[in-house]
Amino acid sequence: MTISVSNLFVERSGKTVLRDVSFHIDKGEVYALLGGNGAGKSTTLLSLLGFIKPGKGQMHVLGENPETHPAKVRASVAYLPEAATLYPHLDAYENLEYFLGLAGFKVGQARLDEALDTVDLQQPARADRMESYSKGMRQKVAIALAVLRDAPVLLLDEPTSGLDPVAIDDFNRLVRSLAGDGRTILMVTHDVYGACQVANRIGLLRRGDMVGFFEAKAGQRIHTEHVHRAFAERAAV
């Protein structure tokens, strides 16, 4: 089990934002946490990174407790925040070099290009400052960072929010490909269609409570219509 969350309770500013949340993710799986605004999706990710201390419950990422060993957890996790902008005054190479340097990695130009090829970022754009990038291009660079770090775990916060349909398809393909390489991916989203396209399992969150769960049958995808109905009935705020 790569990620396990058991009976998690989190309070922020005196308000309970996660209540008795439990799920687990195995290696090579894509797990989607679906929920509306204020459901507690991003709080779950920040808790797994050790940025938020839970009131009760247990969490483990690759066997490490993020509450007690946040540095170890962060070293093995690539985190893409919502609307990952990285640094607008840097180009793709500079951004990657900087973040990799902070994580203690040093890679050459060829390896950078290889990772950017993997995420299909066009060659001419790579030396442009990211202030000129579309959101989809920025997401690609952020994914390339995860690829370069060779992080076994990816935490993605609303990764397809604001992307055009073509970019979403590209992104979903990339996520499936990364999972196929053995990476464990937890993505939080309110995009039902996208979640069903890539996730092996889906959890529904509503105002801090886990209100539904779906699992894909072997070799199949989760049925969008079922999830959509459940989301509309139980999770949407």
Binding site: L46, L49, F51, A71, R74, A75, V77, A78, Y79, L80, P81, E82, A83, A84, T85, L86, Y87, P88, F99, L102, A103, G104, A142, L145
Partner: peptide, 11 residues
């Protein structure tokens, strides 16, 4: 710019 989270995410 939401760069603090990935920054701190690098350890």
């Amino acid at each position: 710019a939401r760069t603090l989270a990935p920054l701190m995410g690098q350890g």
